[in-house]
């Protein structure tokens, strides 16, 4: 299945094994009980606005990286739209309506998924959860609806679709820039309301991530105009 001669396989396999050996040896030399950053995070938890350390790091202490990561997601969708030569999902072929039992099941499950998504979003403050988990569940619900022939993301107008894609990144940026008016560095939240700002940002991000993830799946499906598509 590869056009390489078997000797090439041997060479690459040997090289990979050698690399693994070197890396494993290095791993053995790593300290096993270093002072991680957990202590430092613990010290600042009370001013972070949330009660879960990972959420605090993601959305407050190192929120800059999370914001940029939303940008990476956005560029991925931009790329997908570019390659598919579409501006939104309206050209996607509608799937046929699912058979009655499956249809009933999906009508039951999809709203529950929306509920679970909201729960995961809320739980981000107290435990594992937050925007990404909630967004992926919601996106999966959108894909499920489309698979069974129900109206889903492809019935959104172009403007609404693009707005939803960018709302997470934009709200994060605006919230971060707002307090620059009072001479604070970018992405500083006032201690008292930090929790609320984080929830606002996470909510916007949930919608963005849901639409992004669903679009990345649905965007690769056949479209009505595919047969006329000239290479």
């Amino acid at each position: 299945m590869s056009r390489f001669h078997w000797s090439m396989h041997v060479v690459c396999a040997t090289a990979a094994t050698f690399l693994a050996a070197v890396l494993i040896y290095t791993v053995m030399t790593l300290p096993s009980e270093p002072a991680g950053l957990a202590r430092l995070v613990e010290d600042f938890m009370n001013v972070s606005g949330v009660e879960h350390p990972v959420t605090a790091v993601l959305l407050n202490f190192r929120g800059y990286d999370t914001w940029l990561e939303l940008g990476v997601l956005l560029v991925a969708v931009l790329g997908m739209l570019l390659f598919q030569r579409q501006n939104d999902l309206r050209q996607i072929v509608r799937m046929p309506a699912a058979e009655p039992v499956l249809d009933w099941l999906i009508r039951l499950i999809a709203p529950m998924m929306a509920l679970v998504s909201g729960y995961l979003l809320w739980m981000g403050k107290y435990s594992s959860g937050g925007a990404f988990q909630a967004g992926v569940v919601l996106g999966a619900a959108c894909v499920l609806l489309w698979l069974s022939g129900h109206p889903s993301l492809e019935s959104l107008s172009g403007r609404v679709f693009r707005f939803l894609l960018t709302v997470g990144f934009s709200v994060f940026m605006i919230a971060g820039a707002l307090f620059m008016l009072s001479k604070q560095p970018f992405l500083t939240y006032p201690v008292a309301t930090a929790g609320h700002w984080i929830l606002l940002i996470e909510t916007a991000a949930t919608f963005s991530i849901a639409v992004t993830v669903a679009a990345l799946i649905m965007g690769l499906q056949p479209t009505y105009s595919e047969t006329e598509d000239q290479p």
Partner: peptide, 13 residues
């Protein structure tokens, strides 16, 4: 030097 989010390194960026 600019501490994003007013958090000093190594906690912040």
């Amino acid at each position: 030097h600019y501490a994003v989010g007013s958090w000093a390194a190594p906690l912040g960026i």
